[in-house]
Design a protein around this nucleic acid. Sequence first.
DNA 1: CGTTCAACCTGGGCGC
DNA 2: TGCGCCCAGGTTGAAC
Length: 290
Amino acid sequence: MPELPEVETMRRGIAHLAGLRIESVVFPRDTVRPLSMQPAAETMQQRLVGRMLAAVHRFGKRVAIELDERERVGREWLVIEPRMTGLMLVADPPTQTHLRMEISLESRQHPRLLFWDRRGLGTIRLLDERGLTAACGPDRLGPDGLVVTGDELHERLGQSRRAVKVALLDQQAVAGIGNIYAAEILFAAAIDPRVPCSRISLARWEQIAAATRGILAEAVRMEGSTITDETYKTADNRSGQFQLQHRVYGHEGEPCRQCGMAIRRIVQTQRSTFFCPECQWHHRRRCRRL
DNA sequence: CGTTCAACCTGGGCGC
DNA sequence: TGCGCCCAGGTTGAAC
């Protein structure tokens, strides 16, 4: 589920916990998958208890909770990657069964910070400065989608023969776009998702960048897209509202709101792509207001 | 090198 | 009711 707008909403929903100290940490379900948790639960607990949450950051589709300095280790970051079904919560989780992490904080109200993940594809990592750079630094993640420019997209993708929709999902090129927002961005920019990057002019990369910033900012303002409950909720258990603004994603067969033509669904690199075959035909280049 | 694909998981929805 | 299949907001390492 979570793409940039949802993860940013999670970040904002837990940011007020900064300044509090960790009282206890529980990993209720053994997530033994090697990649899902590093280091192992016991080590993780030892290194977390007693630490203060210094700040809450976002890198692409990841939340990074900065921890205060500790002797010998220095500053560390608890990096959570929700992937498909992970949720950062301060509210009660949808079920007890897929609760992956529960952090209790020292405060009168005894707030808890939870990571709940139905499918269990999400990851929890505790990283030092070097690890953070390796995982979330500029070698791994491109410019953030909220601020990416046409020049940057052109430079990073202009030579690629990949279809533009596929390329926009490449986190190394631009960070934060996922399957929903790729579709909505290309509709807003009136670009055919099948067009190879190498055939896109600089002017059109500017359009795509503007649409990226605009759609993502609007989606953040509306606290993300809740398509089905239990896949995405805000940290305090409210639904996002941007799904009401989706023009193509999930609307296969419905008439386009611009032109009336039926929205199509195709598959690109094993994932659904939704688009309007009229408004996003590659011989057309109308610029659309966001 | 760039690009594609199966695998990692659980669960909802649909047709039979 | 139940079974089998397809689908789902992401990323990775191996294979082309």
